[in-house]
């Protein structure tokens, strides 16, 4: 079974996100390790992209910071960060990036390196179901799960997407881009139920979650919660002091996803 799927076993999963090279090489390594120490079940590491069209202002800004001093930041440097992370933790890792980064490195070479470093999956917001074919067989060969996204307006596509999913399914909480918000789309329960009729692959809800209350609420609906912008805000605010804050935040959120809801 996929290590990612495993991370949801017997509990709700908490999946935080930070951007690579924000603030720098060592900062990235420390941040990921701190999230693991706080109890993250999977860590999502963002590979910065010049034009992150699915991301809101917070993650856009993180990508810009990450590329500011070195716009040519090589993918190999990011793989080296993962190598350094792997010396300290075996927390399941996924990359979040845009397809061009993977395409430019070469699908074969990229997924082979992922396999070697224990990157268990890829979340690629600009690779919908129809465009998976070119990467899927190669990723499968290297045991890298391609995590699909399902949205509140996926409609008839929900079952098709769910049927081919491995690892976990990223359920987008609401329309628009990533970033903290106070309201989520109606019908998330129905959406998750439709997925569950088709597959046993677990679901995690992301986009907009930042408070413990929201994490508890979302984990009642799905099998886990993904939090990006809130973690990135901590990195932006605390810089080198971010790791301790990230560990604390993760502890709270991890407890929240497994808490009973207050009614």
């Amino acid at each position: 079974m996929s290590k990612l799927t495993d991370a949801f076993k017997n509990q709700k999963a908490f999946i935080p996100f930070v951007a690579a090279n924000d603030p720098d090489f060592d900062g990235t390594v420390n941040n990921v390790v701190a999230l693991a120490q706080g109890g993250a079940d999977i860590v999502e590491l963002g590979i910065p992209f010049s034009d992150p069209i699915a991301d809101g202002p917070v993650i856009q800004a993180a990508d810009l910071r990450a590329l500011k001093d070195d716009p040519d930041l090589p993918m190999d440097t990011i793989f080296d960060m993962v190598k350094a992370v792997r010396k300290q933790t075996d927390v399941p890792l996924v990359f979040l990036t845009y397809l061009n980064i993977v395409f430019r490195y070469g699908y074969e070479a990229f997924t082979a390196r992922c396999e070697g470093l224990g990157i268990e999956g890829l979340v690629i917001p600009d690779m919908p179901l129809e465009e998976r074919n070119e990467l899927e067989p190669i990723a499968e060969k290297h045991h890298v799960d391609l995590i699909p996204l399902v949205t509140p307006i996926s409609g008839d596509r929900i079952e098709k997407i769910a049927a081919s999913a491995t690892g976990f399914i990223y359920v987008v909480s609401s329309l628009g881009v990533t970033g903290e918000r106070s309201e989520f789309a109606n019908g998330l329960t129905d959406l998750v139920n439709r997925i569950r009729k088709v597959t046993d692959v677990p679901t995690a809800i992301g986009f907009g979650i930042h408070t413990t209350e929201q994490a508890t609420e979302m984990a009642q609906i799905a099998d886990g919660a993904i939090v990006g912008s809130a973690c990135v805000n901590i990195v932006a605010e605390y810089g080198r002091q971010a790791p301790a804050k990230l560990t604390d935040y993760t502890k709270q959120m991890k407890a929240a996803v497994n808490a009973n809801p207050v009614r």
């Binding site: 069209i53 699915a54 397809l99 917001p125 600009d126 690779m127 919908p128 179901l129 129809e130 465009e131 699909p148 996204l149 399902v150 949205t151 307006i153 996926s154 409609g155 008839d156 596509r157 997407i161 987008v172 329309l175 628009g176």
Partner: peptide, 12 residues
């Protein structure tokens, strides 16, 4: 060519 675009826009 193709449709390399977020899932949110695919139905539309």
């Amino acid at each position: 060519g193709g449709q390399y675009i977020p899932e949110t826009l695919m139905n539309e």
